[in-house]
Design a protein around this nucleic acid. Structure first.
Lengths: 185, 185, 185, 185
DNA sequence: GATGAATGAGTCTTCATTCAT
DNA sequence: AATGAATGAAGACTCATTCAT
């Protein structure tokens, strides 16, 4: 049945379990059992448990890196920032379980080797949408816009309604927040 | 030698470590060593590791319960909702490490016995600030206002400036978001 | 409420729990909780956990010692042996939980300091009812008579009927076994 | 180095220690040390400590199950009952340490998951050798016959003589007891 | 006559990891 | 590409025991 896809299947199952129960509470035994292979098999594909997380992060986190690279070459206009929001929104949608995992396991992620990278990326992104000369409130608005997207899952489970519709509303609110932070422009 | 404050000291150290490294990565040995007592001493004061978290939650989480109780008796006006934001903002400020722990260890908290309670409280609060007849975007605004406060720590570490000033700005943005969701009123 | 009788109450509860769950599985915490005192209180009355068993054994096991002392001065006739059975039967009835405990926890008792004494006593008793010149089968009969009494509880729970009636029947069978071992007399 | 016999070796050592010192007083550390493996190795072969006992019980207790199955299809004549005694005698001889363990650790066994099964089997067997219409004394005789075998070890250590000869005598006494319970037939 | 607080040694158990096959 | 067998380190937890008050 399965041929070269075992590595992929490990990633899938691992991400699912990590997101559901957290990294530390998910044991390699559990992952192996779900896949009906032995723990040792996991070690054929990944050097360590942490390696699995790293692989998830670099496979699924790439779009965010690309977004940052793109943004760094744009002028820091309101329109650019709105586009950042739109792209970030899309990136999140494409790797929801990974971002859920990261959002809900920050304490863990911080202690992992990817922690640093992760934090840097978020800081970079936050820096890009802020205007250093704006008022404190406006700077908070910009970061909050970003964060609203990032916490979309959370926000959305607290509101009733169609999934798609909520997702659009979240983006709308974020963009609006961003615009209000630039009322002068 | 030691007075009746050991229980309190355990809670303090535990909360600090839980918030810093997460619940699972913090061992009772670590807590005991910091306090210079034996692991068994912890068990004199708390039945299980989970019990420590539960005690933190019920000691420090009380203000939020009181807030909910109060809010349930108010009319659902804009002013009430703004007051909810102010009070929630104050409650968070009073137990920042606990909320940081909960925010950053959601996957863990979910698997703990307090998880249910915690989720209920957040859902109740989210329900109270929303107007069921409002547009989807406005409902998202309300929840996002709450969440902005809740994630204050996160937001604030991404913005430079004086701690106090940022804290006020966060509340201001939240209140403003809430107001915008009630433009008709 | 309780005055000088705490020691007695400890013994009662301890014996009950030891008989039900065994010596090692019964913790001092359990005993203390049942009595609604602290573990430390137990240590006021008994030096160690083993001391509790020892006290039970010397308080309740005395009748058997007396029986042995008495028997040692009698001629080894069939009638003496039947009287031993009757007296042993009575001694068992008077301290059923203790004998149940000893019977069902032999491995434990063996490792306790009383173990030696206990075994000696049983061996002495077994020696007294046997006739060294009898056939092997008859010697087994004598020991089996003793043992049938000793295992009365066990035997009796495998047979339906009135408690008292069964108890008498057990003694009858034991006496009959003993008589058959002495057919010549 | 080691072949597939580790599981078996664990069972052997465990049974020996359980029989000698009891289940609770035998630690996995002790078992592991005797085998010169780590405790974790035990867990590769058995899920829990209790699992070791369960495995012993189902490996070595099978003959008794077979005996019961066989007996259920026989007419309840005296001859059948004597054959039950003979077969039970043989079954016990084949797994003496296990039965010694069970006999001497009844309180423990009762609290283990196998306890129920064990008790059921003994009750079934006791039910099969009794004649419900017989006198109470005769019913006790039947059960006592069974029990005499079961306690053979105990009986035999209280009697001097050759092991084999005693074993035969025990069976003889048991058969005789059974016969006496059926004098009319 | 008893408690509150604590300890040290030990329990069972789980985990990530290794390696010969 | 994967397994069977095992390890070392660590985990949470329990226990009998002590002692100042």
């Amino acid at each position: 049945m399965s041929r070269g896809n075992t590595r992929q299947r490990i990633q899938d199952v691992a991400l699912e379990l990590f997101a559901e129960h957290g990294y530390e509470k998910t044991s390699l035994r559990e992952i192996a059992e779900r896949l009906d292979v032995t723990k040792a098999a996991l070690y054929y594909h990944f050097k360590t448990k942490e390696d699995i997380v790293i692989s998830l992060f670099s496979d699924l986190g790439r779009p965010v890196d690309e977004l940052i690279a793109w943004a760094e070459e744009q002028p820091p206009t309101l329109e650019t920032k709105r586009e950042i929001l739109r792209r970030y929104h899309a990136a999140l949608a494409g790797a929801r379980p990974l971002f859920r995992f990261m959002h809900e396991n920050q304490a863990t992620v911080r202690d992992l080797s990817i922690g640093e990278t992760f934090k840097e990326r978020m800081t970079t992104l936050a820096g890009m949408v802020q205007d250093p000369d704006a008022s404190m409130a406006d700077r908070v608005r910009c970061v909050s816009a970003l964060f609203t997207l990032h916490a979309g899952l959370w926000v959305m489970q607290a509101v009733d309604g169609d999934q798609e519709e909520k997702s659009r509303a979240v983006l709308e609110v974020a963009e609006d927040l961003m615009s209000r932070a630039h009322h002068g422009e």
